[in-house]
Nucleic acid binder design. Structure first.
Lengths: 192, 192
DNA sequence: TTGAAAAACTAATGTCATTAGTTTATATTG
DNA sequence: CAATATAAACTAATGACATTAGTTTTTCAA
């Protein structure tokens, strides 16, 4: 009712994340967002520069949270324990924030410095966790690509409902990570 | 100019796939599609029942092509050779048809029988290729989930541009699949 | 207290999907 | 071959949305 609602960018992004998680990212419209915040759509432009920009902010917001979860999980652990913990944290983030997780992967990344920074931070964390395996420069790059593929692929297919059968998917994930870790040594010794 | 253009569903879906691959799936609008086909938007409704339905058809169209590529690649091969060939075919499909591949993963799948059928067909193919490893019922399910996660995750991140560094991504993929195959035996022996 | 800046607003435009109702070409049937 | 039914195109209209322009109003600082 009051002409000053007191919005700010963070409130808007957070509300958008809620919509994304609850109803799916296709429901994240400025119209829905404005309604949720008790405001008219154009008012949002005082704080964000449009839907595209909002999506970028959402991706940053999501990656920051994802980094926190992964980082916290890996902290103190070593080797395979750390990889498992970090991987589970990744997937659990995608489970508890399906919409926000999805926005994370739809951003151009090329343009925005903040987005590139948080992406790099996650990359560095993964590299750090894989450091104990002494894979060398190239080996590390291959391994990072592999682990990210596993985690994103798993999270994405699980969310999509692709794992139709009623068999504990945490076991599937754990085994997949085991497989990956076991294979890392092979990469190291036999890679050209 | 002629009042009968001679559209049919297949032509429409195929044109939509072209738009998806060339400009991205967010550009697949009925307006753009109609323009490409030399027709007004409402005319499309004589052949499809709306945008949602078109997306489902696109997913089916994509999965059919994906199945063909995977199936053709795996044909005649065995064991790890077949897994590698099939995996590369999967990723190559996503490379040559990025938009169409993406539609493949955005469909509800619950509702449409045809979509469920072609999905099952791909699932069966993967199971068949993994059969030589004698993983048992549960082991097979875990392995299928793992392989699909790897392939989809890799394809998705590669398309997104997530593999920033200039290092041959086919090598990354090949190593990842090697890792997976090596680990499959472990799954078999040590799984509870 | 006054004035400037920020944050809300209304109004308007353009794009899109979709529906309703109309025209026209083609194919079937007598 | 003619008449008619059907299917495929069309125009017109509606409603959702993002976005821009221009206006009002609140707040804060001088």
């Amino acid at each position: 009712m009051s002409p000053r609602v007191g919005l700010d960018t963070k409130t808007i992004v957070s509300a958008a994340a809620q919509i994304a998680d609850e109803f799916g990212i296709e429901e994240v419209t400025l119209a829905a967002l404005a309604a949720k915040l008790g405001v008219r759509s154009p008012s949002l432009y005082n704080h964000i520069s449009g839907l595209q920009s909002l999506r970028t902010q959402l991706a940053i917001y999501g990656l920051e949270q994802l980094y926190e979860m992964m980082s916290e999980a890996a902290k103190g652990a070593n080797g395979s324990t750390a990889v498992h913990a970090m991987g589970l944290a990744y997937v659990n983030f995608s489970r508890s924030h399906p919409g926000l997780y999805e926005t994370t992967l739809r951003a151009p990344e090329g343009q925005n410095a903040e987005l590139a920074a948080i992406s790099d931070k996650i990359l560095s964390l993964i590299i750090l966790v894989l450091q104990v395996y002494h894979l060398g420069e190239e080996g590390t790059i291959h391994a990072v690509r592999g682990l990210r593929s596993i985690l994103h692929g798993f999270a994405s297919l699980e969310h999509k409902g692709g794992f139709g059968m009623p068999l504990d998917s945490n076991v599937s994930l754990s085994r997949l990570i085991d497989t990956f870790i076991a294979g890392i040594g092979r990469m190291n010794s036999e890679g050209e």
